[in-house]
Every structure is written in C-alpha cells, then in structure tokens.
C-alpha cells in the first residue's frame, strides 16, 4: 500500500510541469524513504532525476516498494482539475493497475477523486557516477531562465565557460553573437566555485527545457567538469531535487 499526501497541489503541478516537456511517460519508484524517478529524453541526450524524500510529504506510507508508471499528459489533465491550494493524496494498492488522486479544498468542503490507469513501462535505469565538478555555480533560477531564453535567439548551440572571473554563456549564429557574463556577487545571489576553468558546448534547446523547473526553486545549481554531462539542479524545498544532466557537444 502506498499513500502520500501533500498540503498543496501547486508544488506537484510544478514538478510535473518541470518533467513533461522532456518526458511523455515515466515511472515513479516509491519506497519507504520517498519517491525517485529517473528517465532519459527520447533522443537520449539528457537525463532527468527526481527525488522527493518522505519528509516532503504531510503524510507518507509505503509498506512495500512500488513502481507507478505514469503518462504525464494524463497526469497533467488530472492536476488541471485541482486548485493549487487543494491538498492532494496519491494512493495505490500493491500490484495495482491504477493510482488514485484525491483532492481536498483548503476549507475541506469539497473533495474530488480521480483514478489514473498505470502503465507498464520498461524503463532503463542508468548509474549516475559521483562527480567532482570543477566548477559549481549557484544563481537565481530566474536569471538562468532568462539567459537560456536570450541565448536561444542567437544559436542552437550554447558555450558555457566558467573560470574564477565568472561564468560566461555564448551563442553565435547567422544573426550575430551573444555573450552574457555573470560574476560572483557580494550579496551571494551568484556564487562561483572554480578548481579548474571549464568550457563546454551544449544544445540550447535542452537548457531551455530544464528551465521549466524555475518556479520550483529560488536558486539553481550548475555543475561543470571536462567531458562530462552538465548538471542543472533545482532543489525542492529542503526535501528533494530535480537534477537534469545534459551530454556536451563533442568534436566530430
């Protein structure tokens, strides 16, 4: 038996919004410690990893590990039926072929239950190695979203170069070129830790997709190391995260 209750549907809506552009379907792996999900996009260029520890939930019960294969489009449709300030309870029996979502209005005067058919997804799990990133940058999530949007105007390819001087985003195309550089701020809005400078090239379209998670977090963490995927991490309060990994572009 699995049961998890969140005080606000809004955060769940935001989590699904952060996933659904990159994934159509996904399996939530529920255990007694919380919920995990990991999936590659269709073209296997990026990987998204979601972790919600049980402390994130108002109520959490999971007697036995259970995998819930969900169609994210269908889940979005169900979430549209709920108000952001409704409480939501997700329930599934052991070996169930459906999941139940119950919404309760803030004043408890309205309840609504929905059933969603579960999918049997054959999802491949990848081992994500522990990586020491040479450059770790924290910046406001809205700033990162703005940079990705502005870069997209110029080119499909974005170079991210990080050194002690700052982090620089560059894009150049037929129209011209764009360079945006952020330095560390004294107020701590932007922090930049650099062991070795790193410069890598990425597909801007994926970076833009990752910024769908912007409403979830004030700050985004970016990790860069030579010849490994970029890490873009959005914390979910103190109880979890969405991490996106993006394979760099490499010389032909």
């Amino acid at each position: 038996m699995f049961e998890a209750r969140l005080a606000s549907t809004l955060t769940l809506k935001r989590i699904v919004d952060a996933l659904r552009e990159i994934l159509n379907q996904s399996t939530l792996d529920c255990s007694d410690t919380g919920i995990q999900m990991q999936a590659m996009d269709n073209s296997h260029v990026s990987l998204v990893s979601l972790c919600l520890r049980k402390e994130y939930f108002e109520k959490y019960k999971c007697n036995r590990n259970i995998s819930l294969g969900l169609d994210l489009k269908s889940l979005t449709k169900v979430l549209k039926c709920a108000n952001g300030d409704d409480a939501v309870t997700i329930k599934a029996a052991d070996k169930a072929d459906k999941v139940e979502l119950s919404f309760e209005s803030a004043g408890k005067e309205r309840t609504a239950d929905y059933e969603l058919r579960l999918l049997n997804l054959d999802q491949e799990h990848l081992a994500i190695p522990e990586t020491e990133y040479n450059c770790v940058v924290h910046m406001p999530a809205t700033e990162f979203a703005r940079i990705c949007r502005d870069m997209a105007t110029f080119s499909e390819s974005v170079v991210i170069a990080c050194s002690k001087e700052g982090i620089k985003f560059s894009a150049s195309g037929e129209m011209g070129a764009a360079n945006i550089k952020l330095s560390e701020t004294t107020k701590g809005e932007v922090s930049i830790q650099v062991d070795e400078p790193v410069a890598l090239s990425f597909a801007g379209r994926y970076l833009s997709t990752f910024t769908r998670a912007t409403p979830l977090a004030e700050k985004v963490k970016i990790g860069l190391a030579p010849d490994v995927p970029l890490l873009v991490e959005y914390p979910i309060e103190d109880y979890g995260y969405i991490r996106y990994y993006l394979a760099p572009k490499v010389d032909d």
């Binding site: 260029v45 491949e124 990848l126 090239s201 490994v228 990994y245 394979a247 032909d252």
Partner: peptide, 14 residues
C-alpha cells in the same frame, strides 16, 4: 564541427 553526444556515453546501465 561539434556533434551532440549521448548521455549513454557517460552513464552506464545499472
């Protein structure tokens, strides 16, 4: 010219 790498080249199957 740069080409897009695959995430599978970096993360192996469990």
């Amino acid at each position: 010219k740069k080409i897009q790498g695959s995430i599978r080249n970096y993360f192996s199957a469990k």
